Computed example of a mutant assay.
Amino acid sequence: MTVLGMASAVAGFIKVRYLMDKAMIDNVIFRAHYRVTSAILFLCCIIVTANNLIGDPIQCINDRGVPGHVINTYCWITYTFTLPHEQNKVVGQEVAHPGLGNDYQEKRYHSYYQWVPFVLFFQGVLFYVPHWFWKNWEQGKVRMISEGLRGLLIGEKAEREHRQNRLVQYLVETMHQHNTYAFGYFICEALNFVNVICNMVLTDRFLGGAFMSYGTDVVKFSNMNQENRTDPMVAVFPRVTKCTFHKYGPTGSIQRHDALCVLALNILNEKIYIFLWFWFIILAVLSGVAIVYSAAVVTMPTTRETILRRRFRFGAPNAVDTIVRKTQVGDFLLLHLLGQNLNMAVFNEILDEFVRRLNFGSNSNLPSAPSTIEMTPIYPEIEKFGKETET
């Protein structure tokens, strides 16, 4: 299977969902975790395992005392090493390659390259976990109660109005029963932020403590004079390393064979991790902003009022005040998610009718809705949700 074929299998994570049976149950930052980031990590995993991009991931040269394929396999499955004290010396004059010299010094061993695809795949799964939790907590509520109202407005007007009335009645009858629903969403949103921070720490530990400052070091390197700079990526992902192979000689004595190994795979690893450094930083900032936004929604009714006023156009006066005053956070979240899935005109009609139901029997200038509407659900799941929330 070609790299392009494998990469196309990952494209489903980030494709835009226009299908009628799909409902959006989160915001764009939430989706950036489980769609975009997971897809990026899975794609990187595929790239580093595609040998046809760079050839063999490791090739070693020695004194011909050991067959080439043997020394290549041995050094790949064990480890190679560099010498930190030889890292910043002039190549071609003081050292043959950065980090190489005599072996009577402190050694830095490298075996992480064996685990890079596994770690990338594991991280991709971690970024999908919060969405999996939320999807199971949500249980398709938004999809079921908005069935037949999402997408293009095709069909008879009477049928659409009938569905809208059923949805409004469900919202009225289950008011103040969605706080647990909202609690699950906000917990998963906080889990996204914790997850990206933990992934940064995990990557830093995996790369021997070099990841946290990796991006800033690369930026500084790019701004330095061409003749007086040392590539920090070579220190983290060395392209040439040393490997030692021991074997028995003809008389039974132990012979040592030194080899220089070219790690072609690191030319991909260094680019992948510099991109991930910047992406994780951006994602962590956006996730932090999302948490602050959610905290404001939970603790400040004025925030909910501002969101409703800016996003939706109401046909009735004082409609926003009525919704904010008579609903709770769980009700607001459900309305917000419905607004993401319904046509704007349809959703405004639903909100206007919802406000009229809330004001029924009160001293309001709004026209009253009929006192009873036959509740024969188009989808039995609506009744199911009402009963579950009551219990």
Score class of each variant (00 low, 15 high):
residue 115 W to C: 04
residue 117 P to Y: 00
residue 118 F to T: 12
residue 119 V to A: 13
residue 120 L to T: 02
residue 120 L to M: 08
residue 120 L to W: 01
residue 121 F to G: 09
residue 123 Q to A: 10
residue 124 G to D: 02
residue 125 V to G: 08
residue 125 V to S: 05
residue 125 V to N: 03
residue 126 L to K: 08
residue 126 L to I: 11
residue 126 L to S: 13
residue 127 F to H: 10
residue 127 F to K: 03
residue 128 Y to G: 03
residue 130 P to S: 07
residue 130 P to G: 06
residue 130 P to E: 01
residue 132 W to I: 15
residue 132 W to L: 13
residue 132 W to T: 14
residue 133 F to K: 14
residue 134 W to E: 00
residue 135 K to R: 13
residue 135 K to S: 12
residue 136 N to Y: 06
residue 138 E to L: 14
residue 139 Q to E: 10
residue 140 G to K: 08
residue 142 V to M: 07
residue 142 V to F: 00
residue 143 R to G: 15
residue 143 R to C: 05
residue 144 M to Q: 15
residue 146 S to L: 14
residue 147 E to H: 11
residue 149 L to G: 05
residue 149 L to N: 02
residue 150 R to N: 05
residue 151 G to C: 13
residue 151 G to H: 06
residue 152 L to S: 11
residue 152 L to F: 06
residue 152 L to I: 15
residue 153 L to W: 04
residue 153 L to I: 08
residue 154 I to V: 10
residue 155 G to K: 04
residue 155 G to S: 04
residue 156 E to L: 13
residue 158 A to L: 15
residue 159 E to M: 08
residue 160 R to T: 09
residue 160 R to E: 11
residue 160 R to P: 01
residue 161 E to W: 00
residue 161 E to V: 01
residue 162 H to D: 11
residue 162 H to Q: 15
residue 163 R to M: 10
residue 164 Q to I: 15
residue 165 N to C: 04
residue 165 N to I: 06
residue 167 L to I: 06
residue 168 V to I: 13
residue 168 V to Y: 01
residue 168 V to M: 06
residue 168 V to N: 04
residue 168 V to G: 08
residue 169 Q to S: 11
residue 170 Y to A: 15
residue 171 L to A: 05
residue 171 L to I: 13
residue 172 V to F: 07
residue 172 V to P: 01
residue 174 T to R: 09
residue 175 M to Q: 11
residue 175 M to N: 09
residue 176 H to K: 15
residue 176 H to E: 07
residue 177 Q to K: 12
residue 178 H to R: 15
residue 179 N to P: 04
residue 179 N to A: 09
residue 180 T to I: 10
residue 181 Y to S: 01
residue 181 Y to W: 07
residue 182 A to G: 01
residue 182 A to F: 08
residue 186 F to R: 15
residue 186 F to T: 14
residue 187 I to P: 00
residue 189 E to G: 00
residue 190 A to G: 10
residue 191 L to N: 05
residue 191 L to H: 00
residue 191 L to R: 03
residue 191 L to P: 01
residue 192 N to H: 05
residue 193 F to W: 04
residue 194 V to G: 08
residue 194 V to L: 14
residue 194 V to M: 14
residue 195 N to Q: 09
residue 195 N to R: 03
residue 195 N to G: 09
residue 196 V to T: 05
residue 197 I to L: 14
residue 197 I to Y: 00
residue 199 N to W: 02
residue 199 N to V: 03
residue 199 N to M: 12
residue 199 N to C: 10
residue 199 N to A: 09
residue 199 N to P: 02
residue 200 M to N: 06
residue 200 M to D: 04
